[in-house]
């Protein structure tokens, strides 16, 4: 019986693995773009021409020809796709049919607000989840027991209810923030709480289950037998292995954050991707919608890519030499997730 020696983190397998993952991610984004493009092009009735030819919109024949030529609507679908794809690769997302502004400008204007909201919500969710999970292992028994009920409670309350409650109590009753100043830090904070609470439930659920699981493992008993205190056992032994699956869960909750952001923005009266999507759906502004769908896909792919790249660094057991054994995450089902996010 010899030691199965292997370099602890051989750089070469990791590099190969990382390059593979990045290439996969790029392919997924391009496929997502093609998919949405084709879905829109097979829809009955060509919305672009329909919009342009609508007498109310007052486009001159010359303008119509120019726009039709720009989108290549007079040519076969695959040529259109190729052109759209080359424009996409160059960063040109097209022009809004309603405002005549470039789609990238429209999205750029509102993206910041949504990103701030989603990231703060994620921070709130992680802090809450960790607090609950920590409590279940280290608080006195009755408190720990009560804390275990929180995730299901959080999950069962829709986030618009939480949002309305927060507005009612903290804005109207306590006056801690102004509903009018919807982009201010205080308002953002409470919006992030509304959005973060349901997400925290999922993270906490997984974290608690993993902590319970790890605490039953032989090594936890062996560590206890060596005289480690409860809190040292938690920090030094249980937390890291329990947190590894949470990393994957975080990647999955991105969809929740994006979908939830749309609702939360409406409730808190924020201008963000949510309001942009709402406007574009009602006005059938397809270039904008397509861009948002692709954006959602990009966010998903990037987050999952980060998880895939970080995971082997966190877990020494992941063996990168067999590519098939790389961690599975949501990025494996690109189309399903993009559809989910755009719904």
């Amino acid at each position: 019986m010899g030691v199965t020696r292997q370099p602890r983190r051989a750089p070469r397998p990791y590099l190969t693995y990382a390059v593979q993952r990045v290439v996969q991610a790029v392919v997924v984004v391009l496929l997502a773009y093609c998919f949405t493009f084709l879905v829109i092009s097979v829809l009955p009735g060509d919305p672009v021409t329909a919009t342009l030819r609508n007498p109310q919109n007052n486009f001159t024949e010359e303008e119509v020809q120019r726009i039709v030529a720009y989108y290549g609507l007079d040519r076969p679908v695959w040529v259109q796709l190729w052109e759209a794809l080359s424009r996409f690769v160059q960063g040109d997302l097209g022009v809004s049919l309603r405002s005549n502004l470039p789609v990238s400008t429209l999205i750029g204007d509102v993206l910041g607000s949504t990103v701030v909201l989603a990231v703060s919500a994620l921070v709130v969710a992680l802090a809450l989840a960790f607090g609950i999970a920590y409590g279940t292992r280290n608080a006195p028994a009755p408190v720990a027991k009560a804390l275990r009920a929180f995730p299901s409670l959080f999950l069962s309350v829709p986030n618009f209810v939480i949002g309305l409650l927060l507005i009612n109590v903290f804005a109207f009753n306590l006056g801690l923030f102004q509903v009018i100043d919807s982009e201010g830090p205080a308002a953002t904070f409470f919006a992030a709480i509304a959005l973060g609470i349901p997400v925290s439930a999922q993270v906490a659920e997984v974290l608690i289950a993993n902590l319970d699981h790890e605490a039953r493992q032989d090594y936890a008993g062996f560590a206890t037998s060596r005289g480690l205190s409860r809190s040292r056992l938690f920090w030094r032994h249980l937390l890291k292995p329990s947190s590894l699956p949470v990393v994957t869960v975080i990647a999955l909750t991105v969809g929740e954050l994006l979908g939830g952001a749309l609702i939360t923005e409406t409730i808190f009266g924020r201008t963000g991707i949510g309001s942009l999507v709402q406007r574009s759906v009602t006005t059938q502004d397809l270039p904008v919608l397509q861009a948002v769908v692709v954006l959602a896909a990009v966010v998903f792919v990037v987050v999952n890519l980060v998880v895939d790249l970080v995971y082997p660094l966190l877990d020494p057991r992941v063996d990168l030499r067999g590519a098939a054994r790389a961690p599975r995450t949501a990025a494996e089902q690109p189309l399903e997730t993009t559809q989910g996010a755009s719904a």
């Binding site: 032989d218 090594y219 008993g221 062996f222 206890t224 060596r226 005289g227 890291k240 877990d315 020494p316």
Partner: peptide
Amino acid sequence: PLRGRTIGFVPQDPSSSLNPVR
């Protein structure tokens, strides 16, 4: 304080008795 110092433990399955990620 007695754990480890007075009474030590050698567990059954060595492959699962140490924290796998440390």
